[in-house]
Simulated assay, not measured.
Amino acid sequence: MSAAAENPWRTEALDLVRGMSGGLLFGVPLLYTMEVWWTGALTQAWVLLLIAALLFVPVFVMNKTEGFRPSRDVRWRDAAADSVEAVALGFVLAVVMLVLIREITTGTPLGAALGKAFYEAVPFCLGIGMARHLLGGERSSVEGDEQDGNGEGDAGEGDGGEGDARPRVSASVADLGATVVGAVFISLAIAPTDEVPMISSAMTPLWLLAMMAASLLISYAIVFVAGFGKQDERHASEGPFQHPITETVVCYLVALAVAMVLLALFQRALLPWPELLSQSIVLALPAAIGGAAGRLAI
């Protein structure tokens, strides 16, 4: 029996990380949308409660079909309980992300803060409900099938180690390529918007460091904690950039470079260097999330 199965608290924590991972992938693009902030800040309380009630319906259906648990909810009451948990988790996640991008601060009126959080929670909750579907990819055996016990691994060892080196390098190259593809897929629609410089303008150097730390933590959690895509094999992988910490840092730097290139494509390369770097760090958050999802897809 695994340690997670023996410890229900650890199992629940891993399920929550899995749910948050799906919520972030689905909800981050809408997080960078000022119209959603403004609409939420101006919406009356009864409308927000109606939105929460209506949101429960699709989340309930998703928990019956996909959900964020390792297995589907068979009983109706389990699906209902998980749906309440998913909506609450989505709301908390929305609040944390809005604080991170400085759209909720100590000076934000309570009503406006709740409105923004309720509206942003909608895609986060939907992503939590589809977590297993969004991030349940299996990693292809780019590290070699010699571990399957069919004798091919022995042949590779007989080649003086040459057969072992090639798959390890391929795994690193595949991870970097998947990071680029995933980062572009998520951040391309965000890069040309005015939200990026707007968010960046509210960032202090310390807050930018906090955003970088959050990006690293989120991408690490998606790939190495949430239990997606042959996670155990990823922990055991060998290669130039295959250690979990090294892979997370290198792939974040790749996502940061992708963010900078995308901003340059939209005529922001002429900005002063500190301003361009600040905007790149802001855009690197969704890019890192997309890159982590891309690595799970291979």
Rank of each mutant, 00 (worst) to 15 (best):
V258K: 02
E195N: 04
V225Q: 10
A221V: 13
G158D: 09
F241M: 05
T246H: 00
R168P: 11
A178D: 02
V254K: 11
P167Y: 11
M203F: 06
L176G: 01
I199R: 04
H235A: 05
L176Y: 05
G229Y: 03
C251N: 15
G160V: 12
V225L: 08
V169P: 06
D232T: 04
N150Q: 14
S201K: 07
P197G: 00
L188F: 08
L216V: 12
L262H: 04
H235I: 12
F228D: 15
F228P: 08
L253C: 04
F185A: 14
E157C: 05
L265W: 03
A257Q: 08
A255G: 13
A178G: 07
L176F: 07
A191D: 01
V225C: 08
S187C: 09
L216K: 13
S237R: 07
I190D: 00
M211N: 09
T248N: 03
E195W: 07
R166P: 11
F241C: 04
A221H: 12
A210Y: 11
I190N: 00
R234W: 09
P244Y: 00
S172F: 12
N150I: 11
G151S: 09
L188H: 10
M198I: 02
Y220T: 09
D194P: 01
L262Q: 07
A226Q: 01
L188E: 08
H235M: 07
D194N: 05
F241I: 11
G160H: 13
V225P: 10
V250Y: 01
L208N: 05
R166F: 14
E195L: 02
A236P: 00
G182V: 03
A210S: 08
I218S: 15
M212P: 07
A210N: 10
P240E: 02
S237I: 03
I245P: 01
E247H: 13
P197C: 00
D159A: 09
E247I: 00
L253I: 05
S170P: 09
L263V: 08
V173K: 13
I199D: 02
V258D: 02
A214T: 06
D154Q: 11
